[in-house]
């Protein structure tokens, strides 16, 4: 028996090459290749669909756990997706090598960072955020830019990667359209 180890993907390119590798190993080279290039096309299109916004810094907090709060940085796979959409991840500035891209954030840090967009990948209801001490003043909460993600889709880099990317991209576009948020 042959055992193949695939490390956690850290970028779209990684994820796509893993799909191709799986295809080669299982004898479905053609199908894997076409899936990969299909996904690649769509993801590229998603990224391209987001207008360039060099003067509008969209800060984002991506929550993967509460009590204490855990997030992820741009070095992680999902982080790299958000980065490719031009988002500024608040966790990047508060990460050390020890946390391997998944830092614990204090509520004070999150509130002071005042993210414009919050993604919840921990099955928490968006409506509950306003009840957290101090969170009601956070831009994303005050302007209802808190988005619940399907935890299954959000934590895997399989064929449904395109679904996640589409969702992230459309939220970013929505925020961009409400440009009155920025001075």
């Amino acid at each position: 028996m042959k055992v193949v180890f695939q490390d956690a993907a850290t970028s779209v390119a990684d994820a796509l090459s893993q799909i191709r590798q799986l295809g080669r190993l299982t004898g479905h080279v053609a199908r894997a290749d076409s899936l990969a290039s299909f996904m690649n096309t769509y993801i590229k299109a998603d990224i391209a669909s987001v207008p360039k916004h060099p003067n509008k810094k969209i800060t984002v907090y991506y929550e993967i756990g509460t009590n204490p709060y855990y997030s992820l940085t741009s070095k992680t796979f999902v982080g790299s997706l958000m980065k490719s959409l031009g988002l500024v991840n608040i966790a990047d500035a508060d990460s050390t090598t020890a946390d391997a891209g998944y830092p614990e954030l204090s509520s004070e840090y999150i509130v002071s960072a005042n993210p414009k967009l919050i993604f919840l990948a921990d099955s928490v209801k968006a409506s509950s955020l306003a009840k957290r001490p101090g969170f009601s003043k956070v831009s994303a909460v005050a302007n209802h830019n808190v988005i619940e993600l399907n935890a299954d889709i959000a934590s895997r880099w399989g064929p449904r990667l395109g679904v996640l990317m589409y969702q992230l991209a459309s939220e970013v576009k929505k925020v961009l359209h409400e440009s009155k948020l920025w001075k």
């Binding site: 509520s107 004070e108 509130v111 002071s112 101090g134």
Partner: peptide
């Protein structure tokens, strides 16, 4: 926001 940090957190 600072006021929120001080008084709510």
């Amino acid at each position: 926001l600072q006021s929120t940090v001080i008084w709510q957190l």
